[in-house]
Design a protein around this nucleic acid. Structure first.
Length: 519
RNA sequence: CGCGGGAUGGAGAAGUCAGGUAUCUCGUCAGGCUCAUAACCUGAAGAUCGUAGGUUCAAAUCCUGCUCCCGCAACCA
């Protein structure tokens, strides 16, 4: 089973383009794996607990539960709108999740992995954390970034993180494919060096925070947000058995892929989560892979509410269409790296690669078949060097596509797909079927050329389907081959179109975006 | 000496780990075609790969120094 998750989004604001990117990326990766014939399970959702939610709800004069419900709908509606199809949906206020978190806490407590101790120190209300001397600035004080800092003494519960850091360091250093892309690994290992010896405080007293999951062994406390949120990856696939959830053992069969942003690798996923799983007796070969993606910046700067440069994915989908948005989000960034969000590039990529190249290839090929051969597609006569070269291009490009997609490099996969489309257009240009058509004696040759083009479009439709499932279905519909959507990658051999197959006059699948809209 | 990422033709990127004729897209210029969504195809101009050294027969790629940009507090993928 290929099990993929995303970070669960914090329900304290509207979704922006970064949220949309992560989910589209996960959706594309899931659909690709399904296309390879693997069984897949895609889990995503929202993180609803925590102090900021509690505060915002108070400010708006409603209960946290009500507030969270409204924001959650904004997220799920967006996924519906842009074709993000998940199998499991995680909401951390779900009673099934709460039960699971509490069961895990009880279990770890019973094992002595969680203990209580008194801590006296400086506490930042804004950051919801105790500060150490390392957090002081050059003058020895806590800077304004911490907000109000007070010295308090309180009892809290701690998770024995330090028990697991030696294993974690060793595991990360010897593992090549836990942190993807690899260049993020050094950052994590550096952070681990610093963290040695410290345990993780996993409770918050209820005087400060009520909007959370109560500790099963002490009703005066709720769980620290990460201990709550991270567990979604297992709670919603039935780690604690529940008839309304899947069977954990059938989903978590190997190494799942957690798709996360670069900001929550250290320490949340790279340290806390892996240590938590270790504490729960997960074996090394069950440890998740962390696929760490980069950010969409604006003009080289981070997107943020304070800078006012947030991009609204709903607006983009309305203005340019879901195809253009999805295509752009996975085409114009290399997985792991940052990229600059640019509406003009979104339009340009849609217009050139989808409208002018692939869409137009489909349109011209099918139009010629309708006009020259009455819509009948048949293999025709003897193959020439040009024909076999085109078939070879398809084989090569499909192989390159698979290799890229296997590495989660969607951009390169699409580039490979596009390469074949360009070859098809060049082939059409050289073969000139419109010339061949002028001589009735060359009917076989004409059929061969048109067949090669149509067959290529059929393959391309399947290869495109993880990224643009709807558009792929439209291409298949124009080819009168709806069964293309049932095919797996290994089914893609030459001859998808039956001999004598009949098609009808096509219409553009990717109409050019002409409006120069301002976002 | 805090940590990490980055600097490649006008724009955006790939290539850097495993050194060997500088790649792709857009843009610009010139031409061609007419089946097609003013689409498609061909050709050209344009980069001493941030900078200064070093290693090597050979460096965008390896080593050293330096400069500049972006993250690493809040909102936040």
């Amino acid at each position: 089973m290929f099990f993929v998750t995303t970070a669960i989004d914090y329900t304290n604001g509207s979704p922006h383009i970064g949220h949309a990117y992560e989910k589209v990326l996960a959706d594309v990766i899931t659909r690709y794996h399904r296309l390879t014939g693997e069984e897949t399970y895609f889990l995503t959702g929202v993180d609803q607990h925590g102090q900021k939610v509690q505060q915002t709800a108070e400010k708006e004069g409603i209960s946290p539960a009500e507030y969270v419900k409204t924001v959650t709908t904004r997220f799920s509606a967006l996924w519906e709108k842009i074709g993000v199809h998940y199998d499991g949906w995680a909401e951390t206020t779900d009673p099934r999740h709460i039960r699971c978190v509490q069961a895990i806490l009880s279990d770890l407590y019973a094992q002595g992995q969680i203990y209580k101790k008194t801590y006296k120190g400086f506490y930042s209300v804004r950051q919801e954390q105790f500060l150490t001397d390392r957090d002081r600035d050059e003058t020895g004080n806590f800077g304004p970034e911490w907000g109000e800092v007070t010295e308090i003494e309180e009892e809290n519960y701690y998770f024995k993180l330090s028990d697991h850091t030696p294993w974690l360091r060793d595991f990360l250093e010897t593992s090549e494919d836990t942190i993807l892309p690899g260049f993020r690994k050094s950052e994590l290992i550096n952070a681990l060096e610093k963290n040695t010896g410290a345990d993780l405080c996993i409770s918050r007293p209820k005087e400060r925070l009520t909007w959370g999951i109560e500790l099963p062994f002490d009703p005066d406390f709720v769980t620290y947000v990460w201990f709550d949120a991270l567990i979604n990856y297992i709670s919603f696939i039935g780690y604690a058995p529940d008839s309304s959830l899947p069977n954990f053992k059938t989903i978590w069969t190997g190494r799942p892929v957690h798709i996360i942003g670069k900001d929550i690798l250290v320490p949340a996923h790279g340290i806390y989560w892996l240590a938590m799983l270790k504490a729960l007796d997960f074996a090394d070969n069950q440890m998740p892979q962390l696929l760490v993606h980069g950010w969409w910046n604006r003009s080289g700067e981070k997107m943020s509410k304070s800078l006012g440069n947030i991009v609204d994915p709903v607006e983009l989908a309305d203005t340019f269409g879901v195809d253009a948005l999805r295509y752009y989000l996975v085409r114009d960034i290399h997985t792991g790296k940052d990229s600059n969000f640019d509406v003009e590039r979104l339009v340009m990529l849609f217009n050139t690669e989808l409208a002018n190249e692939l869409g137009n290839l489909c349109n011209r090929a099918l139009n010629m078949s309708v006009r020259f051969t009455a819509g009948i597609i048949s293999p025709g006569g003897v193959l020439t060097k040009d024909d076999t070269a085109l078939q070879q291009s398809l084989i090569d490009c499909t192989a390159a596509y698979r290799k890229a997609m296997d590495n989660h490099e969607i951009s390169m996969g699409l580039e490979a797909l596009n390469r074949h489309v360009v070859h098809c257009n060049q082939y059409a240009e050289r073969m000139k079927p419109w010339e061949i058509n002028k001589n009735p004696e060359n009917k076989d040759r004409l059929a061969t050329v048109l067949h090669h083009l149509a067959e290529s479009v059929a393959h391309c439709a399947v290869l495109l389907s993880p990224v643009l499932p709807d558009a792929a279905a439209k291409l298949a519909a124009q080819l009168k081959l709806p069964q293309l959507s049932e095919l797996k990658l290994d089914d893609l051999t030459w001859g998808l179109i039956p001999n004598g197959h009949e098609i009808e006059k096509p219409s553009p699948v990717f109409p050019r975006i002409e409006v120069k809209a301002e976002i």
